[in-house]
Each structure stands twice: as C-alpha cells, then as structure tokens.
Design a protein around this nucleic acid. Structure first.
Lengths: 299, 299
DNA sequence: TATTTTACCTGACTTATGTCAGATGAACTC
DNA sequence: GAGTTCATCTGACATAAGTCAGGTAAAATA
C-alpha cells in the first residue's frame, strides 16, 4: 500500500475533530449525571453490569485507586444497587453483583446510551457513511485495545464475522460462492480440544476472526481468516494468525495447512511473509486454488 | 436521497465509537496536565491565546461561573502568563492578554496538540481515509456549531473553499473547466458595500461558502455556492443561501440572479425549493445552462 | 440626581476525585 | 508455624471544580 502523503491542513483537521469529540464527550458525560450519581459511581455500576464481578479486575479496568474503589462501592451498596461477597476460592478477594434494583438502574443507563447513539444516527442524512467513519476511527483510536478471544464459532460475535466473511467472498470470487459447498465445518472441530476459533474484539465490536480446525489427517487447517474493512492495515490479520498458531501449539498440533484463492492477494502475501510454503492441492474443494503449509516448532 | 436504513448493529457500533473517543479524550486531557497546570487554567490560557480578550466572552465560551473564572485568571496572573486591564470604553469590563511568558506557554500547548494530531495520523495506514472520516464525524457532531462568517473572498478560509469548489466543478462538468473563462469576480464586488462573501466555519475549518456579487445592472448575483462533501445533507447549503439573501437585504438589494449547470441537480433542486424561478439566459458565460431569479422582500 | 443594572471580584461553602499511610485478615512460602 | 505477600478497607488529607451570597464600582436609566 502506498504511503499517502497527508494534505497540508491535515493537523488542523485532526485538531478540529478533537475539539468536536471533546465537546461531544462532555455532553455524553453530563447526560449521565442526570441520573443523580457522580460519574465515578456510574462507571463502576456499568462495569459490574457488563458482567465484571472481580473487584480487582474492575479496579484495573477503570484505573481506580483501591481506596477510591472501595468508597464508590460502599456508596453503591448504601443505595442498594450492588451486593458484595468474599470470593469462594480466595476469601481475600471480593466479588460484586447487581441487586435487582441495581440491574434496573444499569438497564436505565443502557437505555440512555442507546437513545443517545440512536439520536446521533437519526439526525444524519447518511447513517451508513457515518457508521463506516465511526468504525474506522474507533479502530484507529482503539487499535492497542483490540483483544483476541477464544469463542464458540456459533456465538453471536463469531457469526457476525462469518457472515461478513461470506458476503465478502461472494463479492470477490469470480463465481458465486455457496457456503454449503465449501466443506462446512462442524463447530466442534473449531473448539477445544480439537481446534479453536479466535475473534478480535474491540470494545465489544468483533473486528476479525480466524478458525483453527482440527482434522484426523495429522494436521489442522486455518479457516475463515477475516478482518473488518475498517480495521485493515493495522496488522490485525497477522495477530490473528499468530494467535491461531499459538493455539495450535497449545493443542500439540505440529502441522498447519490452509487453502485460499488467488483472488485474495493480501492474504497470500501475508502467508508468504510469515513462514508458510505453497504446496500441492490437498482437498477437492472447488473454490480454493492456492494451498499452503507451515510446520510449527513444538511448544 | 433515499433514507438508508441503519444496520441492526448500528447502535452498538455508535456506542463502541463513543467508548473509543471517551478514552481518547481522556488521554488528550491528561497529556495537558503534564504541563503542571489544572485543565481549567489550561483552557482559559488557550482561549486567551486564540485571541479572545473580553473576559465575559471567555466565560461564555468556556461555560464558567464568574467566581471560578476570576480565580483561574488570578492564578494565571500569579504565574505571570496573562495581564488584565480595564476595557477602554467600559471600565466595568476587563480585557486580558498574554504576556510574553504566556505566549510561550500557549505555543507549547499548541505544539503538544499538533504533535498529538500528527501522531494519530502517522500511525494509520491510510491518513486520507482517516481524515475524511474525521471531517464527516466532526461535521455531524458539530452541526449546530457551524457559524456563517463574512469573509474577504481572498482570505485563506475563502480560498480553501474556492479551490475545492473549482476542483469539484472540473470533475463534474462534462467539458474541462477553466476559471479564467468564467467571468471571474473582482473581489470588491463580493465585499461590502457592493456584495458579500460568506464562509461556513466549524471549529476553524471552512465547510462551505457562497458569494453575493453586486453588479451595476440592478441585481446581484449568487456565485460559488459550495459545501464540503463531509458536511453535505446537513442543510448547510440552505443556510448559506439564507445568509446570502439576508446580506442582500441588508445592502438594499431587491433582485437576485444566479446561473448554474444542469450537471448540478442538488443545487437546482434547492433553488426551486426556496422561491427561485427559472428565467432566460442573462449572460454569455459558456458553462452555465440554467438561470434563476428571486425577488426579495424589502428589509 | 437617584436608582437600577451590569461586570467583575471575594469569601465561604460543597462535591468529586485522587493519594497515601497504615490496618486487617487471608493465602502463600519457607 | 512464622514470616511474607496479597487484596481490600479505613482514615486523613489534598486538589480541582463548581455554587452561591454578598460586595464594589462603573454604566445605564428614570
């Protein structure tokens, strides 16, 4: 990809964007205050509502001092929104959960956030373009917060990726693409202990995936490598492949294979650059026309 | 324009964007704190550095209480960064300006901001796409902060707009477009008292323009109506036209005319929707092929 | 000229947030 | 089982930010 030179007013435009979002974030935050709770307490309630229960984890996530965390939590307890208990395994740790009243309050914050988001979309003439721009910027700003997670290939996050993957294949391959023809995986082959399915998550949004599919033929296959358009160029495909290889090593797999199509040159370039060697066709699948193999060092 | 239905995960994507920018704004703000001054004081210093000198104006701009403002100012004075004096006309008011030390400190904040902006651009594989996305979002979030300003048509803001306008005409008109052929305006005809040139500004970025060009033939012409691609659909063209008509009324002009090209259907639709009537060709310009007129109520 | 309004200042508060030095009790290590 | 490490809590303190009730002097108004 050629390095596009930024235009001369580039810095001014980024700074104008910064001013606009600073103002927008201020508005977002003050709207939370309308529920009569300081922002810190609202953030803790939100973290618990998202399913975080370990106190230390919440503290790390929000970047709070232990004393401050303790006080905020006591405040929420006094309001009757959360309840804490000692961890069953390690009674130094505390676990927190929402009471029914807390769950209702959390739902109210969620409703507020959803309404705000919908409001931004509703006033714009082209929500699709706005969303694409938001995805692009969200990925750029949050690139070092993208995490790889092991998922069930039937989970909603995985399905979102796979759907986009199939749609893109259909658009890019010369003949129309029908997933049922393509040696469709049993989900179990892409789950421990036979394989794995990794999804790259950025703040709850799935941005890419890769499948490691165990076979009975002495090797595992890499399948369904995909990166969202908004996140391309950030090195995510490589991270996903590294993650898949690490998962394979963890499962004691020594040999990987994959098939791909010559209509996907970026993927092929990546494979060549990361130690894969082209081999002869190893299956009868009609769509792939290029085949690779990589031998892994034993863990 | 068809109303694009947003995809089902639209709200989740907006909220993910919100989380990403909230985090980015936090990082931006904490970096300002590295200069050892609380955010409030830094914001006041910044407002003064931007050229605001009237104390009340700064207070309104930053949304500060008068007591708080006063205290922040005393702090900056104690640091030797600003100096205040009574206003010459109305000695209840105070005017503030930077001392040399204050100017140096302000420049340092500017350098920090520029470096941050450049840093965001530098790490992205496609700065052009990132900037386009930022412009789009900046315009969407700041749409109610877009102001119309009367400018000299030779000012840098005006020239940025005109350059983009000519580039777009060249791209959209079937024959190549040469500005020298097109009855190029004397700047004076687009300035008071003969006419006006309006620029739509959003946080320092020009997003659109329109010229009101006086003639000696008993009417004024609307020229060079342009809106930046990132700001289209927000009703800006209409605001610019309204502004131009108001300026005409202020100058005692009773009749407006304009010429345009059938390759610009959005513009023509706007004219038809806002009280313009199509008339016969009234000049020999080679590019326009559609002509309009509008009679104004006297102010 | 007397009264009211305006722009700013001052002092006394409150709240949110953050920091730090122990205290407590549980878990781990030798 | 004694010492150490760890997670959390508590109290004391600091700072940033905001609010509010007067106070002062100049300007506007009657």
């Amino acid at each position: 990809m050629p390095a596009n030179l930024p235009p001369p007013d580039a810095v001014a435009r980024v700074r104008r964007f910064n001013r606009a979002i600073t103002r927008a974030v201020g508005a977002l935050n003050t709207s939370f205050l309308d529920r009569g709770r300081p922002l810190g307490a609202a953030r803790v309630l939100n973290a618990i509502g998202q399913g975080r229960s370990d106190l230390g984890e919440i503290r790390a996530y929000l970047g709070l001092d232990s004393g401050l965390m303790s006080r905020l939590l006591r405040g929420l307890e006094a309001e009757g929104l959360v309840a804490t208990a000692a961890d069953a395994q390690d009674s130094r740790r505390r676990v927190v959960h929402l009471t029914p009243a807390g769950a209702a309050e959390f739902a109210e914050y969620e409703r507020l956030s959803d309404a705000q988001a919908a409001g931004i979309l509703a006033t714009h003439p082209d929500p699709g373009a706005l969303l694409a721009a938001m995805d692009l910027i969200g990925s750029a700003l949050g690139r070092d917060r993208i995490t790889l997670e092991v998922c069930d290939p039937r989970s909603p996050e995985a399905l979102r990726c796979l759907q986009a993957y199939y749609a893109e294949l259909a658009a890019r391959l010369p003949h129309s693409f029908d997933v049922s023809l393509s040696c469709d995986p049993q989900a179990e082959a892409m789950m421990a202990p036979r394989g794995a399915f990794l999804v790259a998550m950025s703040d709850g949004l799935p941005l890419g995936c890769v499948g490691l599919k165990g076979t009975d033929a002495g090797y595992a296959e890499i399948k369904r490598l995909w990166v969202a358009p908004a996140a391309r160029g950030l090195g995510l495909a490589r991270r996903l492949m590294d993650g898949a290889e690490a998962a394979a090593q963890g499962l004691g797999i020594a040999l990987l294979r994959l098939d791909t199509n010559s209509a996907l040159p970026e993927a092929i370039a990546l494979y060549r650059a990361t130690g894969w060697t082209e081999i002869a066709r190893f299956n009868d699948d009609p769509y792939p026309d290029v085949f690779f193999e990589k031998r892994l060092a034993q863990a």
